[in-house]
Deep mutational scan, measured.
Amino acid sequence: TFYNFIMGFQNDNTPFGILAEHVSEDKAFPRLEERHQVIRAYVMSNYTDHQLIETTNRAISLYMANL
């Protein structure tokens, strides 16, 4: 899942690491979701930090390219 992918960046001092920290603390994050459209919609609806949203979009693109 995307959640498992992004958790691989925990403790990294990178934008993906920052995203992983936010996702791990977000109890409502769709952890079992595999459809990138649902993940993107969730982030757009629940996150207000523009940098975090952009990082999510980049992470989703990388995740999709590696499926």
Rank of each mutant, 00 (worst) to 15 (best):
A65C: 10
I18V: 12
P15N: 09
E54D: 10
A65L: 13
S45D: 14
A28I: 06
T56I: 14
Y42F: 04
R35W: 05
E25G: 13
R58P: 06
L67V: 11
E21I: 14
E25C: 11
P15D: 13
M64N: 08
F9R: 01
T1D: 05
Q10R: 15
F16L: 11
T48I: 10
E25Q: 15
N11S: 09
I39T: 01
N13A: 09
H36S: 12
L62A: 11
A41W: 09
H36D: 08
V43K: 00
I18C: 08
L19Y: 03
Y42D: 03
F2S: 02
T1G: 10
H50N: 12
Y47L: 04
R31I: 08
Y63E: 00
N11M: 08
Y3H: 03
A20S: 06
L19H: 02
E33S: 06
R35Y: 06
R58Y: 11
Q37L: 09
I39G: 00
R58T: 10
T1C: 06
H22K: 13
Q10G: 07
S45H: 11
N11G: 15
E34R: 15
E21M: 15
D12E: 13
M64T: 09
F16M: 10
Y47V: 04
T14N: 07
D26C: 03
Y63V: 03
E54F: 06
N57E: 14
L32D: 15
V38D: 06
I6P: 00
A20K: 06
R40I: 15
G17K: 06
A28T: 14
Y63R: 02
V38T: 07
F2E: 01
R58K: 13
F2Y: 03
A20G: 03
D49V: 05
F2Q: 00
I60P: 00
M7L: 10
A59E: 02
N4H: 11
N4G: 10
N57M: 14
F29E: 02
Q37S: 12
N4I: 10
Q51A: 13
T14V: 03
F29K: 00
F5P: 00
E25R: 15
P30M: 04
A20C: 03
L52S: 02
E33I: 03
T14I: 03
L62G: 03
H22L: 10
F16S: 02
T1R: 05
F9P: 02
N66L: 14
H50S: 13
G17L: 04
E54M: 11
T1Q: 03
D26R: 05
H36Y: 12
Y47S: 02
L19T: 00
P30E: 01
Y63W: 15
N46M: 08
P30A: 03
L62F: 07
N4Y: 10
F29H: 04
H22W: 11
I53V: 09
L32N: 13
A41M: 11
L62S: 06
T14K: 03
E33K: 02
R58E: 13
E25D: 10
A28D: 14
S45G: 09
D12T: 15
F29C: 03
F9K: 02
F5D: 00
Q51W: 13
N46T: 11
Y3Q: 00
F5C: 02
P15T: 07
I18M: 12
K27V: 11
L19W: 02
N13V: 07
L19N: 02
Y63S: 02
P15G: 07
T56M: 15
Q51R: 13
L32H: 14
F29L: 01
S45V: 09
N46P: 02
E34Y: 15
I60M: 08
L62P: 00
F16G: 01
F29V: 01
D26F: 05
N13P: 13
T55Y: 10
D26V: 06
M64W: 08
E25L: 14
T56D: 02
S24P: 03
S61N: 11
N46A: 09
I53G: 03
R58S: 11
R40M: 14
R31Y: 07
K27W: 08
M64Y: 08
L52W: 04
Q51E: 14
D26I: 04
L62N: 05
R40V: 12
T56W: 13
Y47G: 02
I60F: 06
L62E: 08
L32I: 06
F5A: 01
Y42K: 00
E21C: 10
E54I: 09
S24C: 08
S24G: 10
H36I: 14
D12S: 14
T48G: 08
V38Y: 09
L19G: 03
D26Y: 06
R35G: 08
H22A: 11
Y3I: 01
N46D: 02
E21F: 13
R40K: 13
S61C: 13
Q10M: 15
H50A: 14
T56H: 04
V23G: 03
N11P: 04
D12L: 11
L32R: 10
A59Q: 02
R35L: 05
E33G: 02
L67T: 12
I39N: 01
E54V: 09
L32V: 07
G17R: 07
Y42G: 01
A20W: 07
K27P: 14
R35E: 08
L67Y: 07
M7V: 06
L19M: 05
G8I: 07
R40F: 12
F5T: 00
G17A: 11
N13Y: 07
R58H: 11
H50F: 11
Y3V: 02
I39E: 00
A28S: 14
N11A: 07
M44R: 07
P30S: 04
E21N: 15
Y47I: 05
Q51Y: 12
A59K: 03
H22P: 00
T48V: 09
Y47P: 01
R40A: 11
N13E: 09
V23P: 03
T48C: 07
M7Q: 07
E34L: 13
Q10N: 08
H50D: 13
R58M: 13
S45Q: 14
I53Y: 06
M44T: 11
N46Q: 08
L19K: 00
N57A: 08
N46F: 07
D12C: 12
N66R: 05
H22I: 14
F29I: 04
V38L: 08
Y3L: 03
L67W: 07
F2A: 00
E34I: 15
N57C: 09
I53R: 09
E54N: 08
A20M: 04
S45L: 12
R40L: 15
S61E: 15
Y63C: 04
H36L: 14
H36N: 07
N4V: 09
N57F: 14
T1A: 07
P30W: 05
Q51F: 15
T55G: 02
E54G: 06
N13C: 09
V23L: 12
T55P: 01
D49P: 04
A59Y: 05
I18N: 08
F2L: 05
V38K: 07
H36K: 04
V43Y: 04
T48P: 08
E21V: 14
F5Q: 00
H36F: 11
E54P: 03
M64S: 07
A41R: 08
F29T: 06
F16Q: 01
R40E: 09
A65Q: 13
T1K: 05
E21W: 14
R35I: 04
T14D: 05
V23K: 03
D49E: 09
H50G: 10
V43Q: 00
